[in-house]
Amino acid sequence: MPEEILVIGGGPAGMNASVMLSEIGVNVTLVEKDSFLGGNPEKFKYKFLFPDLQPAENVIGELIKKTGNNSKVKVLLNSQISGFKQTGNKFDVAIKSPQGDENKIFNSVIVATGFEHFDPARDAKYSYQLFDDVIDIKDLEKMLGEGKFLRPSNGKPPRNVAFILCVGSRDRHVGNQYCSRVCCVVSVKQAIELKEHFPESDIFIFYMDIRTYGFFEDLYWEAMEKHDIQIVKGRVAEITSGPDNTVVCKGEDTLLRGPFEIPFDMVVLASGMEGGPQSLEMADKLGLEMDEHRFLKPRNITLSPFRSNIDGIFLAGACTGPKAISDAITEGAAAAMSAHIYAQKNP
């Protein structure tokens, strides 16, 4: 009988796992809850990816093509896992999809349920949803993807824009103590994109620490020396409405100027990543462990970050913690290899 592997989640990690397994002749069933493949990058129409600003289409579009037009990958959209039980070394899974309900035995399973963007409305001090000109990085990414650069409130070019880092991350009040790892570089990237579009505008980034780790640092340097973006150390304490249809950021410049209250035309909140309800649901249905940050918990975070607490079930991508698209793709490959080995050893 040919090897059957179930992949749950059709984002970068799940798609890459499916493609790699298909290339070694494994039959893959890919279950995706949304009506499309591509996960958050597709949902929010990411346009350019850091660090090299290549079009997202090169990466996400490519993976969608390879997964969607693949005779070895059965893609089930708008679908759910409705039942799950272990039978011996295998897994008996009930899948509910628009094509009808089916039960199938799988040799192994890869969970790649991704992440959710933090909803900044949960932190009242940022006045998100109160003022049209306060948006977050996923909103801006979508706007940029659709070629919209203007202020949401009046459709005019912004004279100045503030990026506020660590929204929904590194904050016990919202329950997320961890760093979301990519929001610094996404903000820097978007600041550069805005500045290239509006060379006359002033762009500020308010930060606690700039965490553009590894080669992402290149973008940070570029932002300062090529685009003259102002980087201010201090977290914004409050956003209120200002004169002349502006929004005012209030905080402390902890290095230089002390208190500041600056009116901006547009404020962009660098909202972080959360595990999301879909990972919780999988933990429930499959018996997976969650960690204290409400992401899925790998068996050993260093030795086997793609292995779950259950033999035969593997994890890939942002469902185990915030990470960049490239890391999710790498983990998809690692989980594919491990799932294949498990299937081979437990025929």
């Binding site: 977290r235 905080g251 410049d253 208190p259």
Partner: peptide, 8 residues
């Protein structure tokens, strides 16, 4: 965190 939110 030396973030200055308290001060802000």
């Amino acid at each position: 965190l030396n973030c200055g939110v308290c001060t802000g």
